[in-house]
Computed example of a mutant assay.
Amino acid sequence: MQRLFFLLSVFFCLGLQAQVRNIPINEVPENLKKKAVLVDVRTPGEYAEGHLPEALNIDVNTDDFTERIAKIRKNKAVLLYCRSGRRSARAAAIMDSLGYRKVYNLEGGFLAWDEAQNQE
């Protein structure tokens, strides 16, 4: 019985992860850039120091993150980022558990975006 529970847990977790797509900054399609809701999940202080244009700031570490993120319609594509990708991956998992199916996690986060901007 324990073995069955373990196997089901593994398959369930793998299924959740499959809904979230990690995407490098240089591979974000133009149509996604134009249509996705861009969400910065860092703190307001980090956001104030610099953020991607038109990004909403919804801090994943706040108690009301789930309530605030739920204001975004579930049929919208959402592109999440943080400083380096760890918090946005956690936010993506939360959104997946809430039924969002078009969730993208920007690999490398703000640091990767900033580096790409400096190379242009």
Rank of each mutant, 00 (worst) to 15 (best):
Y104W: 10
W113T: 00
N57C: 14
L32C: 09
I72E: 14
E115S: 11
G85Q: 01
K33M: 13
L14S: 07
I25M: 09
E115F: 03
I23C: 08
E30A: 13
I72T: 13
Q119P: 03
L32E: 10
E49T: 06
P29A: 07
L7W: 06
R83Y: 07
K33T: 08
A18W: 10
P53Y: 03
C13P: 02
C82R: 00
N31D: 15
F5G: 04
T66K: 15
P29Y: 06
R86Y: 06
A77Q: 11
R90N: 12
L80Y: 02
I25A: 06
V78A: 07
A36W: 07
G50R: 03
G109D: 01
I23L: 13
Y47P: 08
K33C: 07
D59N: 15
N31Y: 09
K102I: 00
A116S: 12
R73T: 03
G99P: 09
Y100Q: 01
D63T: 00
A112D: 04
R90A: 13
A92G: 15
V20Q: 10
Q119H: 04
L7T: 02
A116K: 13
L32H: 12
E30V: 12
F11S: 14
V41Y: 08
V39I: 14
A77I: 01
Q2G: 14
N118Q: 15
K76S: 14
Q119G: 01
N31F: 08
D96K: 11
A112E: 03
V103F: 09
G99L: 00
W113S: 00
A18L: 11
A89S: 15
N105W: 03
Q119D: 03
A70M: 02
S88K: 03
D114P: 02
A116V: 00
G85F: 01
A77Y: 08
L32W: 11
M95I: 02
G50C: 07
N61G: 11
L80K: 01
A18R: 10
N75E: 15
A48Y: 02
K35N: 15
L106C: 02
P29E: 10
N57L: 00
T43I: 03
R83D: 08
S84M: 07
A36T: 10
G15C: 09
R90W: 05
V39Y: 09
L8S: 08
N75L: 04
L56I: 01
L4Y: 07
I94P: 05
A116E: 09
V41D: 07
A116R: 05
P53I: 00
P24G: 07
F5N: 10
L14G: 14
A18H: 10
F65V: 00
Q2W: 06
M95T: 04
F6A: 09
D96Q: 13
K33L: 15
D63S: 15
